[in-house]
């Protein structure tokens, strides 16, 4: 089981959290203006790296706040926790 550092409540077990998938996917401002390919890319295509992954978590059984996490998808190591809306922090090991 992973331990995740909630920015508000501190370190808790993974079971308290809800996973929200890849972070930083912004809904297009004007979907009608997009090509089918661009819309499919927004809806369905995902980075899915083997390496450091930027992803969203929510502290479902605590403060119920969403936040972003950089986590390694092979080691499961959490390397950074940062607020929603903040840019992805620099990390030496970029996404594979």
């Amino acid at each position: 089981m992973m331990r995740i550092e909630c920015p508000w409540c501190g370190g808790r077990d993974e079971t308290e959290f809800h996973y929200g998938g890849e972070a930083h996917i912004a809904r297009p401002e004007d979907p009608d203006a997009l090509s089918d390919e661009a819309w499919a890319d927004y809806l369905f295509m995902r980075a899915n790296p083997r390496g450091v992954h930027a992803e969203r978590w929510m502290h479902a059984q605590g403060c119920r706040q969403w936040f972003n996490v950089l986590r390694h998808t092979a080691s499961h190591e959490v390397v950074a926790v940062y607020p929603m809306g903040a840019p992805r922090p620099d990390h030496p090991e970029t996404a594979a």
Binding site: M1, H18, Y19, N48
Partner: peptide, 13 residues
């Protein structure tokens, strides 16, 4: 398990 992983293991829960 809910999260993305290449680790070939998951949580006990």
């Amino acid at each position: 398990d809910s999260f993305n992983s290449y680790g070939q293991r998951g949580g006990l829960h």
